[in-house]
Nucleic acid binder design. Structure first.
Lengths: 211, 211
DNA sequence: CGAGAACTCGACCGCGCGGTCAACTTACTG
DNA sequence: CAGTAAGTTGACCGCGCGGTCGAGTTCTCG
């Protein structure tokens, strides 16, 4: 429907507006982390010490706000993956990436935006591009680890992207009591990627593009 | 707050009321499965071909309705675990149980009720009891498998209960496109439970009671 | 069959949400 | 320093939700 308004050689923001935008993104990230995606716009505005209307000046809808945060996170993970790719040991590089991914997932569930379930998102273009970059980077990480024998051969980058969200979910119910519990289950998942004695997987991986 | 009203030697329901109750539970299960826990009472009532008020006659609040469904599922899983415990191979018994658990999680996310995050639930007593029964049964399953060397020694029943929810989450975003994808990730998780070459786990398991 | 208890029903209530807008304030520019 | 475009604001709107209730209906049992 709405053309992604992608090509916006936007005029520069006014100084105060730029500041408010940052305040809003920070407040939204914090509020979403605490209350989940159902955090209210009013609360976010209050936290940013800004009028409710200002939120909608910067982000035409709540989805746009969420999308902005998601894109930032995806880009950050992409950067991490790329820099880890430059590092030495493929196995630990992959584990380090999984840790970073799970850690972010711990803060806010964006897994829906990591996949095709984005039918409801307003500006899919931004998310899709960011996601594609990330999946590419992760797949490079996985391929290298696989060639070196650090992970089983039947695992793809798409699998890793999906699996890195799982520990946060598994530990989610006990998050309050044991905030670091996810590390335990991340290690279990990582061990599930070992090549030694792996059982054949009963379903093909999702195609990289369709992630 | 509310005393669990547990000891209710309830008078028998009228015939039509009993029928409606079943219709409601079925409709609610279906609606929750399709729309998630945010499915509306009105939709459930419509699906059950029943007035909205009737829903509240049978279940004083939406939480009570969810709780009723959760208890039924927990009991069902408990039963499965116990009958699998009577079976032969400990390893496959555990895998079978994980499959059942993940399958149910696929239908409706009740993981919050599998753990202590039940502060918001109205009748914790019912859920807590059902959960305790299940955890006990699962722990027996795990202990047997561990003794036989089918799973790593540092894994407990509580871990298994939490981990069986993970595959549904990992595959969740692509549920529409690949409804069976969770099986792939369930196998990865299961492989993560193998004893051979497991890395030490970086966090203690949650105590059985606190699950 | 008739009385009354048990149950059903949907209009109704209050609330909090995402989103709008016209009046106001503020930062930039010449 | 003025003029104006850019940005801010909070009262306001419509909506859909969970939950209530009294009038109406239906089962049950003597």
């Amino acid at each position: 429907m709405t053309p992604p308004e992608s090509s916006g050689p936007r005029r520069p923001l006014r100084a105060d507006a730029a500041r408010n935008r940052e305040l809003l993104l920070a407040a939204a990230a914090a509020e979403f982390a605490e209350r989940g995606v159902d955090a209210s716009i009013a609360d976010i505005a209050r936290r940013a010490k800004v009028g409710k209307g200002t939120v909608f000046n910067h982000f035409p809808s709540k989805d746009h706000l969420l999308t902005a945060i998601a894109v930032a996170r995806l880009d950050q993970l992409t950067e991490s993956a790329e820099s880890l790719l430059a590092g030495s040991d493929p196995g630990t590089a992959l584990l380090d990436f999984l840790t970073l991914g799970a850690e972010q997932q711990q803060q806010l569930d964006l897994s829906a935006m990591f996949a095709g379930g984005t039918a409801d998102i307003q500006d899919p273009a931004g998310v899709d591009q960011a996601r594609e970059r990330m999946v590419r980077a992760v797949d490079a990480l996985v391929t290298r680890a696989r060639e070196q024998g650090a992970v089983r051969p039947d695992i793809t980058g798409a699998d890793v992207v999906l699996l890195m969200c799982a520990p946060a979910y598994a530990a989610g119910p006990l998050r309050q009591a044991y905030p670091e519990l996810w590390r335990r289950y991340l290690m279990v998942v990582f061990d599930g990627l070992r090549p030694e004695g792996a059982h054949p997987l009963p379903h093909p991986p999702p195609p990289l593009g369709h992630l």
